[in-house]
Design a binder for these strands. Structure first.
Lengths: 162, 162
DNA sequence: CACAATTAGTTGATGCGTCATCTATTCACG
DNA sequence: CGTGAATAGATGACGCATCAACTAATTGTG
């Protein structure tokens, strides 16, 4: 854990650091910041009986409405691989937060829909998660958040011009 | 009448977005960017027979030198909880990349030291990981990396002045 | 000195992510 | 049509993280 005092010191000598050191420091900061966010968010959702991953599935399914979504479509939206999704939904189904039904027109597909109980959990978490997110970024102004978002996008899409 | 530039238009749109939407978008971008970094780094180290987590342990132990470090000191530097470390080191020990020895003056402690084979792996990965990291941040200028680092630090330490 | 509290570390159970492999179904094309 | 390729999804095996509970050694205190 980088201490604040260490950070100030680092800032003072920043100018002399080569690019790869800055990139290294940024990589570490990225991982640690994301990890901290994950943990605090986890402590918000687990009291409601779901993990972060399960919550994300529920949120996607709530957005999909009555018709639901095929299993792998959920995986795609979560940037996740197939096997994980199957088991994630196994657990959500066991808790009756999600229902599965084979598609009639293409019997390979399994459509997943959220139940009322599942939707209730996601709805309950809307406000708290919004607040928690704002709390998480409270060290930044709105303009700084925009900058952060822009920089993160540039990292993921390095070959775009704007 | 002046014609609004594209950028100006974008800024106007941004200003209409409430803070929590920006924070939400930034949160998602943070997670996705960190995850992408993790995956690409993983593909770099796994061919050398270690996972990212094992690599991080080895790097810490290389830094600790001959004397090594007690198990929980490694955990602290990795921001990780104890049980994970024990098993991580179990595997490194099984691969003979790390050695464990009970401390004589305080027999509760177990000092871990890196073996020559372990150090060889970390050394081999120094250059590639440096290059990979630079590649990962290639979409940013040095100044932008500094800004990113600063913003991430502000997120984690929101209550400091600068 | 003895006993309670603390510290270092391990173990068991559970959840997630990933790879390789497998089944079932549909498609594509000769 | 019919057979081989592609697609949707499930399962097994393994690695990691975390919680709770445990052992062993040390420290602190009356």
């Amino acid at each position: 854990m980088e201490r604040p005092s260490v950070r100030r010191l680092r800032e003072e000598i920043q100018q002399t650091k080569p690019f790869h050191d800055r990139a290294h420091a940024a990589g570490i900061a990225l991982v640690r910041t994301a990890d901290e966010g994950r943990r605090t968010f986890e402590s918000l959702v687990t009291p409601h009986g779901v993990s972060i991953e399960q919550y994300n599935v529920l949120r996607i399914l709530r957005g999909a409405g009555e018709k639901g979504l095929p299993t792998l479509e959920i995986a795609a939206r979560l940037l996740e691989k197939n096997p994980g999704i199957t088991r994630l939904i196994d657990k959500l189904e066991a808790k009756e937060l999600v229902r599965r039904a084979r598609c009639e027109t293409d019997r390979r597909q399994v459509f997943c829909t959220i139940t009322a109980a599942g939707a209730a959990i996601v709805n309950e978490l809307d406000e708290p998660s919004r607040r928690q997110n704002q709390q998480f970024f409270r060290g930044l102004t709105a303009a700084q958040i925009d900058t952060l978002l822009d920089l993160l996008d540039r990292v993921r899409y390095p070959d775009e011009k704007p």
